[in-house]
Simulated scan of single mutants.
Amino acid sequence: MKAIIAAAALAAVALPAQAQDKFEVKVAAFVGAQHFMSKWLVTWGERLEKASNGRLVFKHFPGAQMAPPPAHYDLARTGRAEVSWFLHGGTPGRFPLTELISLPYMAGSAEIGTKVLNDRQLRSKYLDREHRGIKVLLLLTHQPGNIHTTKVPIRGADDLKGLRIRFAAPTIRDFVAALGGTPVGVQPGEQLERLQKGTLDGTFIDYGGAGIAFKMGGTLKYSTEMYSYVSSFGVGMNPDFYKKLPADLRKLVDQSTAGVEKEVGEGWDALDAIGKKLLIEGGAEAIKLSAAEDARFRKVGQQVVDAKLKELEGKKLPARAVYKSMKGLSAKHAKSSRSFW
């Protein structure tokens, strides 16, 4: 009888102990801790820690501590990190349909772009299947980017000819080439050094990235406000880690990124004014395009769109259907979201 009572008591203790198992979540980010998205991920983790009563414990590794930017997707896929924030353009060609959001003049703000990418039907039918080996928690974009240069001001579509310009995604590589520039593939953290050494003449990047994340103030001398493209990113979780979580914690994870598109998008869009201020304080000139030159850039942009859709359809990908869906969603969300256009 004593043995039975002891066993029952042990079982009574064991059940709540099992329910209180803790799970460490390593979160990898490829930019520094001061960046909006790094801070957002910290806040997101704190919310989950609180909601789980401390059963989820987050450790953050900003500044590419765990791997270079191109390897961040694979950090989550392989389980080296439980969660990773990654740049689609860091591995060109791996996410061809998702990166259609980066085609010229697709989305007028991060809020719009992030809402587009997280459309339930678009993701379930096309985008999530490109993210093999991870559980997608959130897709997002930065605010529209501009062309920034060190020596030559870009006041019209002809001014890029012969300039070595860093591109942020394959679609922007094609845009640079179509404008007569020489597209150069450079990882985000290498841009500033290349600009300072003179092996790059300019870069396509958003104001927040240029002024805040990569501290280009004082190096960049001209910023042409085209607001012509957005780069896309993802936040992904290792699927094996997700599966081993108890059902209640899996539910908390699922709920944690539901409906955050406006919050995340507005956060990115707010970086535009801050980053611009830092560049101007460093001596940069902000250039606004005339209506005629803006139209010329947009015309070239549409040529890039048509060529990219033809290229991907030649690979048997449903590019035109995805593009049409994204354009329609972008126009829809532009009615209720901020736009830089």
Score class of each variant (00 low, 15 high):
18 Q>H: 15
18 Q>L: 15
19 A>F: 13
20 Q>A: 15
20 Q>E: 15
21 D>L: 12
21 D>E: 15
21 D>Y: 09
22 K>S: 12
22 K>T: 15
22 K>V: 11
22 K>F: 08
22 K>C: 06
23 F>V: 00
23 F>Q: 00
23 F>W: 03
23 F>S: 00
24 E>T: 15
25 V>T: 05
25 V>C: 04
25 V>G: 05
26 K>V: 09
27 V>M: 03
27 V>H: 03
29 A>I: 13
30 F>P: 04
30 F>V: 07
32 G>F: 08
34 Q>G: 09
35 H>V: 03
36 F>C: 02
36 F>G: 02
38 S>W: 05
38 S>K: 07
38 S>F: 06
39 K>L: 14
39 K>W: 14
41 L>I: 11
41 L>T: 11
43 T>I: 11
43 T>Y: 09
44 W>Q: 04
45 G>L: 04
45 G>S: 05
46 E>Q: 15
46 E>T: 14
48 L>Y: 10
49 E>H: 10
50 K>P: 08
51 A>D: 11
52 S>W: 06
52 S>H: 07
54 G>E: 09
54 G>A: 08
54 G>Y: 09
54 G>K: 11
54 G>S: 08
56 L>M: 01
56 L>I: 03
57 V>P: 04
57 V>A: 05
58 F>A: 07
58 F>H: 08
58 F>R: 05
58 F>L: 06
58 F>S: 09
59 K>C: 05
60 H>G: 04
60 H>V: 03
61 F>P: 04
62 P>M: 05
63 G>R: 04
64 A>W: 13
64 A>P: 08
65 Q>C: 07
65 Q>S: 12
66 M>F: 10
66 M>R: 11
66 M>A: 07
66 M>D: 08
67 A>N: 12
69 P>M: 10
69 P>W: 05
70 P>H: 11
70 P>I: 09
70 P>R: 09
70 P>N: 11
70 P>C: 13
70 P>Q: 12
71 A>D: 13
71 A>C: 09
72 H>S: 13
72 H>V: 13
73 Y>G: 10
74 D>E: 14
74 D>C: 07
75 L>T: 10
75 L>R: 07
76 A>E: 10
76 A>C: 11
76 A>F: 08
77 R>H: 08
77 R>Q: 08
78 T>G: 11
78 T>M: 11
78 T>F: 13
78 T>E: 13
78 T>Q: 10
79 G>W: 03
79 G>T: 06
80 R>N: 08
81 A>R: 00
81 A>C: 03
81 A>N: 01
83 V>S: 06
83 V>K: 03
83 V>M: 07
84 S>M: 05
84 S>N: 08
85 W>R: 10
88 H>P: 09
88 H>V: 09
88 H>N: 14
88 H>L: 15
89 G>Y: 00
89 G>Q: 01
91 T>H: 12
91 T>N: 14
92 P>L: 07
92 P>A: 09
92 P>Y: 10
92 P>E: 07
93 G>N: 06
93 G>Q: 04
94 R>E: 13
95 F>L: 00
96 P>A: 06
96 P>M: 03
96 P>H: 04
97 L>G: 06
97 L>T: 06
98 T>C: 11
99 E>R: 00
99 E>D: 05
100 L>R: 02
100 L>P: 01
100 L>E: 02
101 I>Q: 00
101 I>G: 01
101 I>E: 00
101 I>K: 01
101 I>C: 02
103 L>C: 02
103 L>V: 01
103 L>R: 00
107 A>F: 02
107 A>L: 00
108 G>H: 01
109 S>G: 09
110 A>Y: 02
